[in-house]
Write a protein that binds this DNA or RNA. Structure first.
Lengths: 131, 131
DNA sequence: CGGAATCCTGCGAGATACTG
DNA sequence: CAGTATCTCGCAGGATTCCG
């Protein structure tokens, strides 16, 4: 499967109307927050326990991890499996749908890596020119 | 140019360390906000004047439009051209760098369109099951 | 271990008014 | 026309504490 870059441009009707009714924005509303991508990518590698995620993602609070996982589960991107053991054990893994999201995210990641330096340079230039 | 989906998975080192030093997050910090994508996509079609953007993007305030354009210009994605005429006229257009970002955004948009219904369904299922 | 419940706070962002 | 300059408020999200 491939994704071309020139065709299928985002059409004007995708966004001019109601910003709330725009496909791209819908994804970004899910995934544009501070933690979702981190969680998705980690789960893209393998299933993780709650605590594993908590330790792997530096700086996330329990609250935000829980909320993030909930939101992702609600949208069918992540599946939660609670084992009724003592002590309890809860596994999280990407659903099939969740896995399909890895490709576009990877494309974005690739862009970031390829153009990171250009952006940094542009920013320095701008900051030097202005304040 | 094509982007494969399976290879080049986001590596763990991309994100486990410092969330601030993660390529994907860097892009999302630029583009994950409420308006940047709208602006980028509009400018991807053609150059726009300030007022055109303001009218095209329903609901954006002057303040946020200005801040968004500034941030994009700072990162070298958008170029601002002020014509010293009366009345003043300012054009905004994507830079070459900005244009390269359209591809990954399009990939994301495509994902959104293809899986919109699945997400909606998952959400309804979830909401029916729980609260 | 995996959360839930509160409390608290900064700042993201809207509304409004003014300016070169 | 293309912006600034304030003022203000909401809520995203951190810290902390408690629970099965």
């Amino acid at each position: 499967m491939f994704v071309t870059n020139t065709p299928v441009p985002l059409t004007e009707r995708d966004l001019t109307q109601d910003p709330e009714d725009c496909p791209v924005r819908e994804v970004l509303d899910r995934v544009g927050d501070k933690w979702s991508v981190l969680v998705i990518v980690l789960l893209g590698q393998r299933a993780h326990r709650y605590g594993e995620l908590h330790r792997a993602i530096d700086g996330i609070s329990q609250r935000m991890l829980t909320l993030t996982l909930r939101a992702l589960a609600r949208d069918g991107l992540v599946e939660r499996t609670a084992h009724a053991t003592v002590p309890p054990r809860v596994d999280y893994e990407l659903t099939d749908l969740g896995h399909t999201l890895l490709a576009p995210l990877t494309a974005l990641d690739r862009w970031a890596q390829e153009h990171r330096e250009e952006v940094r340079a542009a920013r320095e230039r701008h900051d030097r020119a202005n304040g």
